[in-house]
């Protein structure tokens, strides 16, 4: 029996909204420790790695590890019926062929419950090697979202280069070239406005803006976003969910022909 109760159901709704355009049919893996998802997009260019610790839940029971095969666009439709302040309860039997979702509104006392048929999704688990990245940048997630949105006007590829000058985002297209340079900023009193750049060695990589834009759907989950890069490796873009988990996106770089 799997049963989990999340007082702030909105967190789970935001997680679904942050990945449902990138990965459609996913397994939500339930273990005694956490709910997790690891899934590549259909083109095998990006990987989503989500984790939500059992400590995020007011009640968490998982007798046996389960994989709940779900179609995220359908899950997203169900979450449209959840109130902002609702408590969310997930429930599935061990012989899981369906998932119960319940939304409880403490104030009005209403309880909505939905049953989703589960899908058998063959899991292609990937081994993601632990890497000591050469550059690690923490910045306001709203700033990253704005940069990605603005540069999409200029072209479809974003060059991200981290040097001692700072972190530069560049895009070139028919109408010209755009560059946005961010420097380390730990002066502002608001922690969330800080930009910290840890650079062990300079890195310059190119990425498809279409994917970076997908990733910024996770902006509501976290005021800060962490970018990690090493020469010739996929970038990791991490949205921490307080101390409870994260949504991480891995994106393969674009290479010179």
């Amino acid at each position: 029996m799997f049963e989990a109760r999340l007082a702030n159901g909105n967190i789970f709704k935001m997680i679904v909204e942050s990945i449902r355009e990138l990965v459609v049919d996913v397994n939500i893996d339930c273990s005694t420790e956490e709910l997790s998802i690891q899934c590549m997009d259909s083109a095998h260019v990006a990987l989503v790695s989500m984790s939500l610790s059992q400590s995020a839940f007011d009640h968490f029971r998982c007798d046996r590890s389960l994989s709940l095969g779900l179609n995220l666009p359908n899950v997203s439709k169900i979450f449209k019926m959840m109130g902002r302040d609702d408590t969310m309860v997930l429930k599935a039997e061990d012989s899981a062929d369906k998932l119960m979702l319940m939304f409880e509104n403490d104030k009005s006392g209403t309880i909505a419950d939905f049953e989703l048929k589960l899908m058998a999704i063959e899991a292609e688990q990937l081994g993601v090697p632990d890497t000591a990245y050469k550059c690690s940048i923490s910045m306001p997630s709203s700033e990253f979202q704005r940069i990605v949105r603005d540069l999409q006007v200029m072209g479809d590829t974003c060059k991200i280069s981290c040097t001692k000058e700072g972190l530069k985002f560049s895009a070139t297209g028919q109408i010209g070239t755009g560059n946005i340079l961010m420097r380390q900023n730990v002066a502002s009193e608001k922690e969330e406005d800080h930009v910290t750049i840890d650079m062990e060695e300079p890195v310059e990589l190119n990425f498809a803006l279409r994917y970076l834009n997908f990733f910024t759907k996770a902006t509501p989950l976290s005021p800060t976003v962490i970018l990690k890069m090493s020469p010739g490796l996929p970038i990791v873009i991490e949205y921490p969910i307080e101390q409870l988990g994260h949504v991480k996106y891995y994106l393969a770089p674009k290479m010179e022909e």
């Binding site: 083109a43 095998h44 990006a46 292609e124 688990q125 990937l126 081994g127 090697p129 290479m255 010179e256």
Partner: peptide
């Protein structure tokens, strides 16, 4: 111009 890489070139299937 730039060619999009695949993650399969970096991550191994378990």
């Amino acid at each position: 111009n730039m060619k999009q890489g695949s993650l399969l070139g970096f991550f191994t299937k378990k």
